[in-house]
């Protein structure tokens, strides 16, 4: 006969076997993950790396200047002009390369600005709470009720189309989305005991935000940065395509498609190349974000 003690249930009743979010070795785990990352993630990584290199060294790679007129209008593909020339006789390849710097650079700048504004407002709302939170959240709800493209068009009409107004308008509009995420993620952390301890210790708001809350919501924010970048990039390209984004003579992929679209009706695919460049980068970033999300959340595909 066994004593009841032999049948005592296992004491190991730890709640869930989910990986803990604040592993110290997360960065190493990420590197480890990178080694066995799927092909799609590698594909995304390589694409992003190539774009960054081209953007940084545009002036070294491009055979001609950004706005330099080097031939007659719409020259075909030749050895001198690998992708022909555009509607003003500028080298298409060179403009494509400079476009990487302008289009991607401005989209990156805008997204960073959006994260600065939306992220800090969201974190403040989450940590401070009360009426500040309520007022901000309601204001953002209303801003989000209007489609971004329409809002951007209206504001660009009011302020006029320049790079500064383009970047600030889109950054502010996009900050609303960032705000939502940062607030929701920050809320979960703001109720943690260690934040309370920091408060009792008398730490200031900035310290709590940057040292206690921010590090713990970084992974979703990084993933969101990738997705927002894609969105901003597509929005700016669309606006440029519509003729109200980046203004000439800046080489920009959206307006390059617009300026040379006439060639398509003659069966020439050159005007599609900048559009393809936009699509390729977006696909690459999407793949990368997809993998990063799966890697940091420990979640697998929904299936």
């Amino acid at each position: 006969m066994s004593t009841p003690a032999d049948h005592s249930p296992p004491l190991n009743i730890a709640p869930a076997d989910r990986p803990h979010r604040q592993d110290p070795g997360r960065f190493r785990a990420l590197l480890e993950g990178l080694r066995r990352a799927p092909v799609s993630a590698w594909f995304g990584l390589v694409i992003v790396a190539i774009y960054v290199l081209v953007a940084l060294f545009a002036s070294l790679i491009a055979p001609y200047g950004e706005g330099q007129v080097v031939g007659s209008q719409f020259d075909p593909w030749t050895a001198q002009h690998l992708l022909g020339t555009d509607n003003l006789g500028r080298d298409t390849l060179s403009r494509l390369i400079y476009g990487a710097r302008n289009t991607v650079g401005i989209a990156f700048l805008t997204t960073s600005l959006a994260f600065l504004i939306g992220g800090s407002a969201g974190l403040v709302a989450a940590v401070v709470g009360g009426w500040v939170d309520q007022a901000l959240a309601r204001l953002i709800d209303i801003l989000m009720a209007v489609p971004q493209l329409i809002f951007a068009l209206l504001l660009l009409t009011i302020f006029g189309a320049s790079v500064t107004s383009l970047v600030s308008i889109i950054a502010v509009l996009d900050a609303t989305r960032v705000f939502r995420l940062a607030r929701a993620a920050g809320m979960n952390i703001a109720v943690m005991d260690y934040v309370e301890v920091a408060r009792l210790r008398g730490e200031g708001l900035i310290w709590i935000l940057s040292r206690e809350v921010l590090p713990n919501i970084l992974p979703p924010l990084v993933a969101e940065f990738g997705l927002r970048f894609c969105f901003v990039f597509l929005l700016i390209s669309s606006l440029s395509f519509l003729g109200i984004g980046l203004q000439p003579p800046t080489a920009d992929w959206g307006s390059m498609v617009r300026d040379n679209a006439i060639l398509i009706t003659y069966g020439d695919i050159t005007p599609l190349l900048p559009a393809a460049a936009i699509a390729l980068l977006t696909v690459g970033v999407n793949f990368l974000v997809d993998w990063f999300l799966r890697e940091t959340s420990g979640l697998d595909d929904e299936t």
Partner: peptide, 23 residues
């Protein structure tokens, strides 16, 4: 569909023009 979502609208439009209208 994941690839398609990443395409700007005007890219899709011009691809369609290329195939169904020009060719």
């Amino acid at each position: 569909t994941l690839t398609w979502i990443s395409f700007p609208e005007f890219f899709v439009a011009y691809i369609l023009i290329m195939f169904f209208s020009v060719q």
